[in-house]
Amino acid sequence: MDTLILVIIGLVAGPVIGGLVAGLDRRVTAWFQSRQGPPIMQSFYDVAKLLGKEKMVVNQWQILCAWVYLIAAAVSVGLFFAQGDLLVIFFVQAVGAVFLVMGAMSAKSPFSQVGAQRELMQILAYEPVLILVFVGIYLVTGSFSISAVWELEQPLLAKMPLLYLALGYALTIKLRKSPFDFSTSHHGHQELVKGVLTEYSGPYLALVEIAHWYETVLILGLCALFWSTNVFWMAALLLGTYALEILVDNTMARMTWRWMLKRVWLLGMGMSVVNLIWLYAG
């Protein structure tokens, strides 16, 4: 019963928190750029407006894929709140990621096609790192279940500092922030217009946006696990991490996928492996 209540809390709170984070993100970014920026609630206004627009699609696959993306993202957050298995949560999240890509590929538009291919490269980059992070958690707690993390007496961060850095790498890619935003360039009139999102519009773009909020919450939740013993430090860790994300986002130019793959597979995997060796030895 408790689990069910937690899941419902997660499903409701997910988009709210995710939307607020998106709003804050824009405010802080504006502050970096000496602008005033939109109100914090702006992301909600945007989505509400999108939901009210006329439905326009290239074909039915986009409708299907947008919905499945949202549902999978929500289910993965629900599983997270139900203290489920980290790998299962990750794979359910991957359902959404795959459908987003497939929906983009269903439209015969060069922009969304290229965006879809690049999104796959992003998945290729972050997936192994995330799996190794979960393996690290398993080695520390003896279980892939999140419930085991709460029983720790020492924060995970103490045992997995390098894996946390690697996770940060993976998260920047997952959140599609610069320098890894090449599958959905933030700004119009760039080499890729809107990449994987080009052909999603109106209410369906709103679904994709809400799904993205869920994903943001899932990612922040993963980070939160690294300081599970103290709520204040957990909050500090999250704030610090996200602030760093925003800083990186604003100071970096977009790179190429080749740069990303090589960087992440060498540096991200390298850090993960070194940290795992400590854990196996310890």
């Binding site: 006329e54 439905k55 326009m56 290239v58 074909n59 409708i63």
Partner: peptide
């Protein structure tokens, strides 16, 4: 729903 051609 309104069916449109992709953006080019």
């Amino acid at each position: 729903v309104k069916i449109v051609a992709p953006y080019l």
